[in-house]
Computed example of a mutant assay.
Amino acid sequence: MNPAGSSRRHDVVLGSASPARLSVLTRAGVHPRVLVSDVDEDAILDDLTGVPPSDVVARLAMAKSDAVVATLVAERDGSESAAAQDASMSDTVVLTCDSMLLFRGALTGKPHTPDVAIAQWKRVRGQSAELLTGHHLAVLRGLDVVASASETASTTIDFADLDDAEIEAYVATGEPLEVAGGFTLDGLGGWFVDAIDGDPSSVLGIGLPTVRRLLRRVGIGVAELW
């Protein structure tokens, strides 16, 4: 049964500040509201010690979803405006993701500092690693979540065998400091990825095939979001 109902419309909220994720969705015909979650990822990671890597990124995505949903519920519950009442009658699809790089059994996220980024690149150059992207989808109707689903996408990345000067030049641009795994596919980092095996959109931060499957699980066709 479709929890949203075939006659209902679907608003979309993207719980991410990532320009790449927003770009992937808008190019694919979805124009979401962006509502950034305010979660302490490091604290969550501390609580997930020993959890399988694919579950770690899925749990992070779920935590972001919970935070975004709480914000939306507070907005609706605290407003008497016609717009808020109208929003409460529509179904809102909340999409959240989290990506980390898995290399030799260890997960790495955003480097944040040049020294960390340089060290990370020196470990993976000339090697292959898995980019894991956890996805969580929640359907909010009024003040209640009526359906949800999670899935982790895995894509193998073959990194170029860079020399030290290339690594330092790339890190000096600042691009790799605030992206998962310290690289991009759609930016300067694209020069240094020799190949990928998997879903390219997942490497950009949100996998369209994965989101399509999650929508199907909650009874929504992807064309209903266009």
Rank of each mutant, 00 (worst) to 15 (best):
A147R: 12
R104W: 02
A67Q: 05
D77S: 10
V36E: 03
K110Q: 11
G181P: 07
A61C: 06
V179R: 09
D66P: 00
L204H: 06
T152D: 11
D55T: 12
G187Y: 03
R216V: 12
L60G: 01
V39R: 03
A61I: 01
F183Y: 15
L140F: 12
V93T: 02
G109Y: 08
A117M: 03
L185R: 05
P114E: 09
I44Y: 04
H112W: 10
A4R: 09
F159E: 13
V179I: 11
V30N: 00
S154T: 15
Q120H: 15
A180C: 13
L131M: 15
A180L: 13
V93M: 05
L25A: 01
S148M: 13
T92V: 09
G142E: 15
V222C: 05
I118A: 11
K64C: 00
D11Q: 10
R212T: 13
D163P: 09
G126F: 11
D194H: 13
L22V: 04
A138F: 11
L48S: 07
S154K: 14
D77P: 00
T133V: 07
S150R: 14
S150I: 06
T96L: 03
S81F: 01
P200C: 12
E168Y: 06
H10Q: 10
L72C: 02
A74Y: 02
L101M: 15
T155K: 06
A172D: 10
V69S: 01
L208C: 06
G142N: 14
P3E: 02
M100R: 09
R59W: 00
A169Q: 13
A20D: 08
L185V: 13
I44Q: 05
A58E: 04
V68I: 07
L188W: 08
L188M: 10
Q127C: 12
S18V: 05
S18L: 08
L22I: 01
D11C: 05
M100H: 07
V124W: 11
R27S: 09
R33C: 01
G174K: 14
A63L: 09
A169V: 06
R21A: 04
L131C: 15
G142P: 15
A149W: 08
V193Y: 09
H135A: 04
S88D: 05
G189A: 10
A117F: 04
S54A: 07
T108S: 13
R59F: 00
L185C: 04
D163H: 11
G50P: 01
D158K: 14
S18E: 07
A28S: 08
T152Y: 06
E224Q: 15
R213A: 12
I196S: 07
A147I: 14
T133Q: 06
L22D: 00
I220R: 00
G109S: 11
L140K: 11
L35T: 05
S150M: 11
V69K: 00
R21L: 03
